[in-house]
Amino acid sequence: MSRLKKLFDEPEQEYQSFHPGELWLDDQGNHINAHGGGILYYQGKYYWFGEHKSANTSQALVGVRCYSSGDLYHWKNEGVALPVDENNKLSPIAKGCTIERPKVIYNAVTEQFVMYFHLELKGQGYRAAQVGIAVSDDVKGPYKFVKSLRPNAGIWPVNMNQDQRTSSLTADDFKEWWTPEWRAAIVDGLFVRRDFEGGQMSRDMTLFVDDDGKAYHIYSSEDNLTIHIAELTNDYLNYTGKYVRLFPGGHNEAPALFKKEGKYYLITSGCTGWAPNAARSAVASSIWGAWETLGNPCRGEGAELTFSSQSTCVFPVYGEKKSFVFMADRWNPKNHLDGRYVWLPISFENGKPIIKWAKEWDKYVFD
């Protein structure tokens, strides 16, 4: 019996396999409410953090919810990890703001759990494009809101050259978007210069902790046109100022980053609102690049639309960094509460990550 199989053996329970896209009930018999989420493995348990959705709005009326599991099939509702602020209407996380794609990592030095999330201020649509940061001494929370901001104000990306930094072109020089000239200007950092003083836009995001304990914030920036990877300080609460741009003008969002056998892999999606599109993948030998595109990692029925879902996280099984699960959301804008989850195992073919559709699968594929 393999180590994985021994660790995963559980008494006979309701769920003995994954059913992507179907209702997934928690220990209280309710559909799991943790959308756009991420997984943290800590002291033998998995913790799933995600957006608590309401049926008729994508605004945050409750906050970030936490679930725990020992086997990945059965999830205990641990309650609201980060509640919205119902008392202070001026709080960045006031009830009615937008909280998306929360991710939690553990800092072994400070012994704190650190949560990052995409934050849009109440009543401002998607103009704020900030990241929110919260901390807790307990993995389940409650998390205390620390601050929100746009990353790396007054700092240039390390892979943006001097000519790009000093170009006199501004957004006002272009009456039309999407022209060849405008696209070229985006690649050359048009929006980086626009947002230089106030900080770079941060929307869809994930977090990644490398083998040396260094942590990174990966986020969609420049009006969702370019992915940024930014290094965090040792306490994971600030930025060191070192960051790079990935695929400028490529229009990527929903980043999910993981590492296998010394190589870094990134899965993203295109930008089509609530509607699904084809996933994208890339690989690099260093997190700073150069990054090589690998195309759509999905295979099977519905692969051209990522099985009607969108990436949110890739996590290692039992933290072993050998076997990985692709975690995605099947959005339902007519009833956000009914959004479903698509989890599938990742395999590799010729050094490329492959995600094959399966109507049902179990953890023993990792044996």
Rank of each mutant, 00 (worst) to 15 (best):
Q162I: 14
D163L: 15
D163A: 15
Q164E: 15
Q164D: 12
R165G: 01
R165L: 03
R165K: 13
T166A: 10
S168H: 13
S168D: 15
T170H: 02
T170P: 05
T170G: 07
A171R: 01
D172G: 01
D173Q: 06
F174T: 06
K175E: 09
E176K: 09
W177K: 13
P180M: 02
P180Y: 06
E181C: 06
E181H: 06
W182Y: 12
W182V: 08
W182P: 00
R183H: 13
R183N: 12
A185W: 10
A185K: 04
A185M: 10
I186M: 11
L190R: 07
F191V: 03
F191H: 03
F191W: 12
R193E: 05
R193P: 04
D195E: 05
F196K: 01
G199K: 05
G199A: 04
Q200L: 08
Q200R: 06
R203N: 00
R203S: 00
D204A: 04
D204N: 00
M205E: 00
M205Q: 03
M205Y: 05
V209W: 09
D210C: 14
D210N: 14
D212Q: 13
D212K: 10
D212T: 15
D212R: 11
G213H: 11
G213A: 13
K214T: 13
K214H: 12
Y216F: 14
H217T: 07
I218K: 01
I218D: 00
Y219V: 03
Y219I: 04
S220E: 05
S221Q: 00
D223M: 07
D223F: 13
D223P: 05
D223R: 10
N224M: 10
N224G: 04
L225D: 04
L225A: 12
T226S: 07
I227W: 00
H228T: 09
A230C: 07
L232N: 04
L232K: 03
L232F: 11
T233F: 10
T233M: 10
T233Y: 12
T233H: 09
N234C: 13
D235I: 13
D235N: 15
Y236F: 15
Y239K: 01
Y239P: 01
T240Q: 05
G241P: 03
K242I: 13
K242S: 10
Y243K: 04
V244F: 00
R245E: 02
R245S: 09
R245T: 05
L246S: 02
L246G: 01
F247L: 09
F247G: 05
F247Y: 09
P248L: 11
P248Y: 12
P248G: 07
G249F: 11
G249N: 10
G250P: 03
G250V: 12
G250F: 06
H251R: 15
N252L: 14
N252Q: 14
